[in-house]
Structure formats: C-alpha cells, structure tokens
Design a binder for these strands. Sequence first.
DNA 1: ATATTTATTTAGACAATGTCAAGACTAAAT
DNA 2: ATTTAGTCTTGACATTGTCTAAATAAATAT
Lengths: 132, 132
Amino acid sequence: MKNAISILRRYDIQPTPQRIAVVEYVLKSKTHPSADDVLSHARKKCPTVSRATVYNTLNLLVEKGLLGMQTIKEGAVIFDSNIKKHHHFVDSDTGDIYDIPWDQLEVKGREKLKDFEVFEFQVIMRGRRKKK
Amino acid sequence: MKNAISILRRYDIQPTPQRIAVVEYVLKSKTHPSADDVLSHARKKCPTVSRATVYNTLNLLVEKGLLGMQTIKEGAVIFDSNIKKHHHFVDSDTGDIYDIPWDQLEVKGREKLKDFEVFEFQVIMRGRRKKK
DNA sequence: ATATTTATTTAGACAATGTCAAGACTAAAT
DNA sequence: ATTTAGTCTTGACATTGTCTAAATAAATAT
Ligand SMILES: [Mn+2]
Ligand SMILES: [Mn+2]
Ligand SMILES: [Zn+2]
Ligand SMILES: [Zn+2]
C-alpha cells in the first residue's frame, strides 16, 4: 500500500492522525476486518481514536470507492481492501474469508434472467481450506 | 405448504401454538423475512409469542434442516423457506431478495481451486428488477 | 498574530439484533 | 397429588451501527 497521507489527499480527504491510522490498517489488511477489528488496530497507532470516527472514516472510504464493504458473515459488515471484482471463500471452521480471483470462476447464464438487470455479482463459497 | 403440525411432528418438534404460528408464516413465506418480520407476523396468530421463542424456533428449524438462513443483507440474518440449492438476486432499490433457480446459472472453474474444499456455493447478484 | 469560520473528533445516547438465564407455565408421567 | 421434563416469557446483557451536541483542531481572514 502506498503512503496513507497521499492516498487520502488524492481522494480529497483531509489526512488526520485518526484517518491515517484507520487507512494504514484497513487498506493493507487482507483479512476482511470488521469495524471493530479496525477500531482496535487503529488504536495501536492512535490510542484516542473513537468508535464514531472509525465508522465515519470507513463509510467515507467506501463512498469514495477506496474500500469495499461486504455482508458475508452474520453479525457485522466486513471491509475489503481489494476493490477489484473478485469472489469469496469462507472457511466454515475459522470464519476466515479468502479472495478468489475474478477469472478463476466463470458464471454463465445471466443473460437468461429476463426479469433482472444485474449490476454486479459474485460467487460466495463455503467450505474448508486445505492445509498446505 | 403442508400442515404445520404434521411438519413439526415429522421433525420431532412438539407442536405448540407459538411454534405453529412461526412455522405457518416462515415456511410459506417467499420474501426471505428477518426474525423481526417473523415475530410480527407470528403475533397475528399468537399475540403473546415472545421474541426469545421466535428466535429459539427459527434456530431449531434451521438446525433440523427445515429452514435456510442467509447473510445477504446487512443488519439482520434472513430466513429462507426454499431449502433447495438456489442463487439469489437482491434488488438494490427495494432490498427485496429473489430466488434464482439453481440450473439457471452455471459456475465453472471450482476444480481449479486447489487450496479449498468447497462444501457449498451460490451466486449473489445485485441490480434492479425489471418492471413487468 | 489574533479572531473567525469551518472541519473534525469525541463521548454518550439511542435503536436494533441476537443470546441467555431465571422463573412461570404446561403437560405428561408416577 | 407430586414430580418431572419441556416450553415459554421477561428482562438483562453484549454487540453493531447511527446520531447529536460539545469540544478540538485546522484553515482563513483581518
Ligand atoms: Mn473479525
Ligand atoms: Mn424484512
Ligand atoms: Zn475480498
Ligand atoms: Zn432463497
């Protein structure tokens, strides 16, 4: 991930210590963290940051298109630093979410859905990750 | 949907007025209701039913395999009377969820995922439903 | 530099979702 | 009638997420 300050400036967001702490964690994370995960990690760099600011910043990043948001697991939304189109695999044992590259799967038959105009889609898989 | 009492008996669940009210609504619903939706509808038939009992019953039905549960929209889990494999389409404007028959789509390439053992999968699409 | 205005953060209130435990209620079983 | 097991209700509780008012910080103007 590039410099957090320059990323924020590029998207016309004033870089503050709080926002920098949020961005530095969430945009480099590959674990699809929840807002609460982001809060606790951001507090390591900026111990005073509040819950409201973390939510405000995450929502702002999503609005600006810097960050993805997914509703894959119950209980809390998760945030996704990978903003390219991709699919997801959820480990049923651990709850961990893995990215599946877009071109690994092909979904055929969408043109047959006469009643629906599809803006976006993804495959969500659940199972067990094989040990390496 | 068949008789609620006989369904409950078949799955070794004692039929009570509360459970019957829940089952009669949730197993015939095609709208993917939330627990709160189920509660308010069940109270029409059984005005005294409590929130805890609705949650207990829904969780029991899911455990027994009579009812599906999905985490498709944020804020609350939704319950699915359709327990056959199928995909989902979410209307971005209304939030309505529609079932897409399993054989309308084909997902190819799962065998290439060497690191993952896939137990189940579905395609989730978002967009706008065309007016009829 | 000081004053003014604007942007941001914080703390806490609030609503909604979901789980849990204690006691009340019901229906068998003894 | 008593015990027992199963079920239900109430309310407490934790968590997620939003919102508002007050405090702070930053930018601008004088
Ligand atoms: Mn997490
Ligand atoms: Mn609903
Ligand atoms: Zn992802
Ligand atoms: Zn469905």
